[in-house]
Design a protein around this nucleic acid. Structure first.
Lengths: 121, 121
DNA sequence: TATAGTACATACCTTTTGGTATGTGGCCGT
DNA sequence: ACGGCCACATACCAAAAGGTATGTACTATA
């Protein structure tokens, strides 16, 4: 079972309980901007993530009702992941943060932002 | 020295490089909603944080230009932390996420949200 | 027969994160 | 003289996060 705090000091803390970790925001970003994806597609889209992490994060996001999982019961396996209504809202709430990052990253990293092929639309 | 990725796949990844970790968003939240605070006030305002973490996160946020530090050179020590212009923008960009969390947390945690005294405005 | 693709699961290990405890400097109150 | 206050610093340890390597079941392809 997952252990989760029972009370939160503010909405932000609650949101972070769902989106915490290094990868969840990025998975969300891909599903939000590129729509439904298969497991293998996600692995290629989220640059640098390992299979173990992807499995784990997808499972947690599903438990939290952020994404939906559709298993086609085919061989070879075919599974599709997409955002739920709740996930779509979360993606939208994340957009300003994304914009802030895009605007200010040069100032922060001292490096111009570069879009890697895998993540480019 | 801090090690930081040189390139980011999207603005979100860049923003997370600055706001990552368990506490930075919460420190930001306090400074954004409650204004300038001294070290000790912050420690009491951010429920559960240890001194070590607070020192560390404040230092990183300062290096990233999110917060400003004013040392009054008094004895006993008196230091004030506040958001820079960049930090204020970041706080605003975070607001939708905060709102999303406040709206949906019951659905997610199965528990009604509770505002603890220390964090209540 | 052998290999590759698909969506996982799992054991094992390293790295990162975070907490506790303790120390420091200098002034102030007792 | 002694402890307390304040804003740190730092050593040490525990826990969590995350990576690598390997295995599984089944089919299709060479």
């Amino acid at each position: 079972m997952r252990k989760r705090k029972k009370t939160y000091s503010c909405g932000l803390e609650a949101a972070l309980a769902v989106t915490g970790g290094r990868w969840k925001f990025l998975i969300l970003w891909v599903l939000s901007h590129q729509g439904t994806k298969r497991f293998g597609e996600l692995r290629r889209a989220v640059t640098g993530i390992s299979e173990k992490m992807l499995i784990q994060e997808l499972k947690e996001l599903e438990l939290d009702g952020i994404i939906g999982r559709k298993d086609f019961k085919e061989v070879p396996p075919r599974v599709e992941y997409s955002l739920t209504a709740l996930g779509i809202e979360l993606g939208e709430a994340t957009q300003p943060l994304c914009d802030w990052g895009a605007k200010n990253i040069e100032r922060i990293s001292g490096q111009p932002m570069q879009v890697e092929p895998a993540m480019a639309s």
